[in-house]
Amino acid sequence: MNHLEIRSATPQDLPGMTRIYNDAVDHTVATFDVERRGDDHYAERLGSTRPGDHVLVAVDAAGAVHGYAFSGTYRPRAAYDGTREVSVYLAEDARGQGLGRRLYDELLARVDADGVHTCLAVIAQPNAASEALHRATGFEPVGTLREVGHKFGHWVDTAFWQRMRPDA
């Protein structure tokens, strides 16, 4: 996966991002969506000009999307302007090869450069791989919400992880 380019997403990347996302909808609790999304699902995020809002993709030489990461509004209130929620999604064949780390390293560098104070991640439980990625990129667990999602016939907990800007 080292041969993949990490760059800002463009509208042409939306179908590849949607393919990855819909795989997560169908097979994982990484998202609590239970219905597939269309190619326009991330279009609004791509158009954001707010400092701290980014959408990155990892693409091969042919332009195929193998993963993506994004940062965006945590809650739409002015007091939360210094906080962003972050997430990463990878194609099934790209998992476990360090691509999530590469995407997060670039995303967090951009978020830090924009002066964002705090990043939050929500991890459905259990997910040891996601917890390891977040720990490796400076996040720490700060709480668990019990049985807040219901998917695939069972209740799912979510853990909140937080990362403060290193120079904050």
Rank of each mutant, 00 (worst) to 15 (best):
2 N>K: 11
3 H>A: 10
3 H>C: 01
4 L>F: 11
6 I>R: 02
7 R>L: 00
8 S>C: 01
9 A>L: 01
10 T>A: 12
10 T>R: 12
11 P>H: 04
13 D>S: 05
15 P>G: 10
15 P>K: 03
15 P>C: 11
15 P>H: 03
17 M>I: 12
20 I>G: 12
22 N>D: 04
23 D>T: 13
25 V>K: 05
27 H>V: 02
28 T>C: 01
30 A>D: 05
33 D>R: 00
34 V>K: 00
34 V>G: 02
34 V>C: 11
35 E>T: 09
35 E>H: 11
38 G>H: 05
38 G>T: 12
39 D>Y: 04
40 D>K: 03
41 H>V: 04
41 H>I: 00
41 H>L: 08
42 Y>K: 07
42 Y>R: 05
43 A>I: 04
43 A>T: 00
45 R>C: 00
45 R>H: 06
47 G>L: 10
48 S>D: 05
48 S>W: 06
49 T>M: 00
49 T>C: 03
51 P>Y: 00
52 G>R: 00
53 D>Y: 05
57 V>A: 03
58 A>Y: 08
59 V>Y: 00
61 A>W: 06
62 A>H: 01
63 G>R: 01
63 G>H: 03
66 H>I: 10
66 H>M: 09
66 H>K: 05
67 G>D: 10
68 Y>W: 14
74 Y>P: 00
74 Y>M: 12
77 R>V: 13
78 A>L: 13
78 A>E: 14
80 Y>N: 12
81 D>L: 04
82 G>N: 08
82 G>Y: 13
82 G>A: 05
84 R>Q: 13
85 E>A: 09
86 V>L: 02
86 V>F: 01
86 V>N: 09
88 V>T: 15
88 V>P: 07
89 Y>H: 11
91 A>H: 15
93 D>T: 13
97 Q>S: 09
98 G>R: 11
99 L>F: 11
102 R>M: 11
102 R>Y: 10
105 D>E: 15
107 L>T: 07
108 L>R: 07
109 A>R: 15
109 A>N: 07
110 R>I: 10
111 V>M: 02
111 V>W: 01
111 V>K: 05
112 D>R: 08
116 V>K: 08
119 C>H: 07
120 L>M: 14
121 A>P: 09
121 A>Q: 05
121 A>Y: 02
122 V>F: 15
124 A>Y: 09
125 Q>S: 14
125 Q>Y: 13
127 N>M: 02
127 N>E: 02
127 N>C: 09
128 A>T: 08
131 E>Y: 01
132 A>T: 12
133 L>F: 11
133 L>V: 12
136 A>L: 02
137 T>Q: 11
139 F>D: 02
140 E>Y: 12
142 V>S: 14
143 G>M: 13
143 G>A: 14
143 G>W: 14
143 G>K: 14
144 T>R: 15
146 R>H: 15
147 E>F: 07
148 V>S: 13
148 V>T: 15
150 H>N: 12
154 H>S: 12
154 H>A: 14
155 W>G: 11
156 V>I: 15
157 D>E: 11
158 T>P: 00
158 T>M: 06
159 A>Y: 10
159 A>P: 03
159 A>E: 12
161 W>G: 06
162 Q>S: 04
163 R>N: 09
163 R>I: 12
165 R>T: 07
168 A>V: 03
